[in-house]
Structure formats: C-alpha cells, structure tokens
Design a protein around this nucleic acid. Sequence first.
DNA 1: CGCTGTCTATGACAGCGGTCATAGTAGTGC
DNA 2: GCACTACTATGACCGCTGTCATAGACAGCG
Lengths: 214, 214
Amino acid sequence: MAESAHGPRERMVFSAAQLIRRDGVTATGMRDVAAHATAPRGSLQHYFPGGKEQLVNEAVDWAGRYAGKRVARFLAGPATPTPSGLFAAMVRQWTDEYGTEGFAAGCPVAAATVDCAESVPSTREAAATAFATWTGPVARALTDMGVPSERAEPLATLMISALEGAILIARAEQDVRALTTVTRELGPLLDAAVEAEGEEGGGPQARGPRTRTR
Amino acid sequence: MAESAHGPRERMVFSAAQLIRRDGVTATGMRDVAAHATAPRGSLQHYFPGGKEQLVNEAVDWAGRYAGKRVARFLAGPATPTPSGLFAAMVRQWTDEYGTEGFAAGCPVAAATVDCAESVPSTREAAATAFATWTGPVARALTDMGVPSERAEPLATLMISALEGAILIARAEQDVRALTTVTRELGPLLDAAVEAEGEEGGGPQARGPRTRTR
DNA sequence: CGCTGTCTATGACAGCGGTCATAGTAGTGC
DNA sequence: GCACTACTATGACCGCTGTCATAGACAGCG
C-alpha cells in the first residue's frame, strides 16, 4: 500500500478509496480527500472536473484492479496454488489488516454499492465493473487449478460473496471470527471442485490440483 | 411488510430502515424519515431524544429482529426443512424483491456497518447485535435439522456472509445472478453437514434431515 | 374551569457539503 | 521578452443537515 512517490492525482484516488472504505461515500468530503492526500484543494477540480462522482468512480475502479492484482500476486507466489489456498490468501489480507490496524475500514466497493447503487448510476456501474475485474482473475485461477470451466465463475462469485459478507460481520463484531469461519467452511468445498485426474466421479475430497495449464 | 396501522413511532423506525437500506445512513435525513412515515417532524425529537443515532440504532435492531423472524416463519412452513431449503428461502426473499421492486435497496444492517462502523460505536454495536439475532435462529434451525452443534454456528455465519455479499453484487450488477449462484453452490455443502442417521462417516450427499427435536 | 402530560408544529441556527469563479504561480516553447 | 498550458490557491455561494427553542393542540382528569 505504498502511497508516496506517486503523482498527486493518483494519491487523491488512493486517498478517496481509503476514506470511502472507512466512512462511506457520503461521509467522505472532497476537502478530506485532498487533505488526506496532502494535495492542494484546487487540484480536485483540475484533475476531476466531473466532481465527486468521477473521483469516487475512479477510486472504485482502482479498488477493483487492486483486488485483481492481489490474485495474480498469489498465483505468482511460491506455493502450489489450490482453490482453498487462494481463498485463504484473499481472506488473510483482511485478517492481517484487522490484526495490525484495527477494524476501521471495509471494502470500498461495498461502500460504494451501499451508498450509491440507487442514487448514482455511474458509480453503481463502476462497482459492478470492479466486482467483474475481481471475479475474472479468480475464476481464471480456478480453472487453471483444474476446476471445470462451468463451475469456475460461480465459485468465484461465491468466494467473493462470502468474503464481502464476512468483512461486514467482522467489522460489526470487531472480531475476525467470521473471516476465519468462512475460510474453514468453504475451503473443502472449493478444493472438491477440482477435477480428479484419474477417477471419473471426482469425490469431494479429491486431492491435488491439476498442474497449471499456462 | 405492513406499514400502516402502527403507531407513528414504529412507522418512523420502519421508514428509517427502508431509507437507510436504500441510500445509506449518512444520506438519509431525519426530515426524509418523517416524510416517508407521514409523521410530523416534531415527533422525531419527541420519540427519539437521542437524535439520529438512536433512530438509526433502532432501525438496525428492527432489521435484525425481522431477519430472525423470517427464519422462524420458514420453519413454521409446510415443507420439511433442510439446510439448503432454509438458505434458499433466505435468498429467495431477495430475489423476489429484486424481481418485483427493482434493485433499489440492500440490507440495512450492511448499510449501517459500512457507514457507521468506524464513526458511531453504538451503531456498530447495534449492527453486531443484529447479526447475532439473525445468526442465532439460523444456527438453531440447523441443529434442529441434524447439523452437529459445533458446525451449526459456523455454517450460519457462512450462510449470512454469502447472502450479504451476494446482495451487494446483485445490487451492483442489477442482476440476481450472484444470489442464485450462492444458493446453488452452497446448497449441497449445507445439506452434507446433516449427520447421517445410520452411517458413521456422514458422506457429503447424506440425504434426509433428522426430524426436528423440539 | 384549570392543570398536566403527550404529542404536534414551525422557525431558527450553526455547520458543513460540493461546486463555481477568479486569480495566482510555475514551467515550457519560441 | 511573450504566449500558453498545467497546476495551485482562495473565497464565496447555496443548499442541506441535525438540533434546539418555542409554542400550539388536545386529551384526561379533578
């Protein structure tokens, strides 16, 4: 989460995402964003002539891309990827943050959806796109691990749904319980979706993931 | 969702919940609540001397109790309850609403969490309580269906997490796809948690639920 | 009648929100 | 030097918010 060394424009988008995921879209003021980014207030109307709507949308876009990149980074890691391992990695990012920095913030895409889905169509679309650019890499990763293609996207949606919901509950309870719970309960189901190599049935406790195809 | 025939106080709490789940907490004004409830503005400070915070908290409480009652109503229904059936019923309430009334609104507890978890401690607690008064009945229902007691609460948390997340995605996409997906993908896992009656292993495709114990 | 408590009805206020308008300051090319 | 663009810097405006203050309606009751 490096934030310096980038241009003021990027910093403002990043700061917007941070503040949005903490306080929600409506409670986040433009002045707050500029201050948080240590950027001049006048730059707001310069870089974002579309006003708050544009800034929020870009923050949501950024969050979607960021989530997608996290998936790629996990796949590039040392361990042999499994579906449950991927999901655990996605969840761990949140348990880590909540462990070290407290339960101050949630997911900016969720916040944008809650606050703007009905009132700001363009932001609603940005949120949908963000979910898509997150689901895509996850589904692709699943197929690469041997999950049948027709089940990859549904399972990716399930993973993200469970994660988003668990984030909400964890924040409300100020306890990572919900997050650890969904990892534990969903892990076996995810690994069971990997097509067994020799057998035809594909039992739920099928073991290894197929080697990645690319 | 009857709204008339109740006192003005109840109507205002109900209206607050409706507006909150549509526009978020911050964007919902006190005047809007009074207008939506066709209640006099002056009654706000009379019934809710604690101001907006109190009103929001009561709306969140109401939502939690409402969700709990829905579970009870499903159990009282004609069909023999199964875990997947319960989850499907919980999800169906949302697909039905989105089918008939559009994707205008989400879950008020989620909205309160997103908007107030960091800024208003009492509302954060109210949201946690709401989740608890929702998880409780679900977990109890699961044990009554034969789910081992130590797995009932984790599974209930998983169900609610997946549902909340799917609601977010469905609203963003304006499509019930995510909701139907989580039902389909999670159903088998839930039913598999029912303890088989004769066998010891309890295979994932165990069939019937145990008859309710009370 | 008068008193009391519950509820209703407005008006005002202070604060903050996003946005516009305007002016200023680099920096670059010529 | 000049022109031009990119960016910064403020101040003002209007609308809205939650809250407070005050006062009115209206029952129940002795």
